[in-house]
Amino acid sequence: MQDLIEFFEKETNKKINIFKYNNEKISSNQNLVTFNNTTYIVEFLKNNILTHVNGYCYLFNQQNLDFDSLKDILNNLYEDIQIYKHNNYVLLISDNILDINCTTPIIIESETYSKTHIIYLDKITSIDELDFKSNLVNELINIIIKDNISKFITLNDLIIYRLAHITSNDKQLSSLIKFDTIKNMDENLLTTGINFIENGLNISKTSNVLFLHRNTLTYRLEKIKEQLNLDLKNFKDAFIFYLSVKSFFNITNNNL
């Protein structure tokens, strides 16, 4: 697909979008082309604006974005993908879910020397849906970058970041959270609790990820329970802790 896009862009000197034809009505800036027994719509982008999307979407954020370099890297890593500039991001669209995970930003950073965050937007079938999700990313991207927990963000992560953002900005809701206690806690306790939750409340897995002895991890979890009266082995307590600490970090980062 990418070879086909590059061929048409080279021949026409215009940015294009290509997607499968499903007997829909085509507009004046679209043409039909058959390739490998499949009919596609070739859409000439007006002012490089994407007007159609149908596939699994990933946004790539870099502080010093070099679009061409990142595009070359992604084309080397994955086949049959479409790549566009979308606002301040690089948008990758694929017909299939790609093997992109928390290790992918590390690979890209080793090539570009630029801090990279990847936000997986799941399958998107309309421009309105793409705009909604990318606008949500725009709203939260500074929080995501400052959080420094993961560089691969899923929709579930976006929901949590949004909830934390709402909580930290709602005075009544914030008053129910023990922010004063959290503020005076050892940050190692807080990050240990977050990691314990993100690793499925699993002692062994968390110990391995944090390179902690099981007894040290258990001690820290007991200290959290002692100071906040929250047992992180209990789902509800773990949820309240996670949302509270994420909201606290959001407030702290906004004050930096």
Score class of each variant (00 low, 15 high):
M1Q: 10
Q2W: 11
Q2A: 11
I5Q: 10
F7P: 00
F8D: 02
E9N: 05
T12K: 10
K14I: 00
I16V: 15
I18P: 11
F19K: 10
Y21F: 14
N22P: 02
N23R: 09
E24K: 02
K25G: 02
S27P: 02
N29A: 02
N31Q: 12
N36C: 14
N37H: 15
I41G: 02
V42N: 08
E43S: 04
E43A: 05
L45S: 00
K46T: 03
N47L: 06
I49F: 01
T51V: 01
T51K: 01
H52M: 01
L59G: 03
Q62F: 05
N64V: 03
L70T: 11
K71S: 07
L74W: 05
N75P: 12
Q82F: 02
Q82R: 12
Y84W: 02
Y84E: 03
K85T: 08
Y89E: 04
L92D: 09
S94F: 06
D95K: 12
N96P: 01
I100H: 02
T103P: 00
T104F: 04
I107C: 03
I108C: 06
E109S: 04
E109R: 14
E111Q: 15
T112G: 04
T112I: 09
Y113N: 13
Y113W: 09
S114C: 07
S114N: 13
T116Y: 04
H117E: 09
I119W: 00
Y120H: 11
L121T: 02
I124Q: 00
I127W: 00
I127Y: 00
D128L: 10
D128E: 12
L130E: 08
D131K: 06
D131F: 05
D131I: 07
F132D: 05
K133Y: 08
K133W: 04
S134M: 04
N135T: 09
N135H: 07
L136A: 04
V137A: 02
N138C: 06
E139R: 08
I141E: 06
D147S: 06
I149E: 08
T154P: 01
T154Y: 08
T154R: 12
I159L: 13
Y161I: 06
L163N: 11
L163I: 11
I166K: 03
T167W: 06
S168V: 09
D170A: 07
Q172Y: 13
L173T: 13
L173K: 14
L173D: 08
S174H: 10
S174L: 09
S174N: 11
F179V: 12
F179C: 06
M185S: 13
D186V: 13
T191F: 15
T191H: 12
I194E: 02
N195E: 10
F196I: 01
F196M: 05
E198K: 13
G200K: 09
N202A: 08
I203T: 10
S204K: 11
S204M: 05
T206Y: 07
T206K: 07
S207D: 07
L210S: 07
L212T: 05
H213E: 13
N215T: 09
L217C: 05
E222T: 12
K223L: 14
E226F: 14
Q227R: 15
Q227Y: 15
L228C: 15
N229C: 11
N229K: 15
N229M: 13
D231N: 15
I240S: 10
F241Y: 09
F241N: 04
Y242H: 09
S244I: 01
S244D: 03
V245Y: 14
S247F: 03
I251E: 12
N253A: 13
N253K: 15
N254L: 11
L256C: 10
L256P: 00
L256R: 14
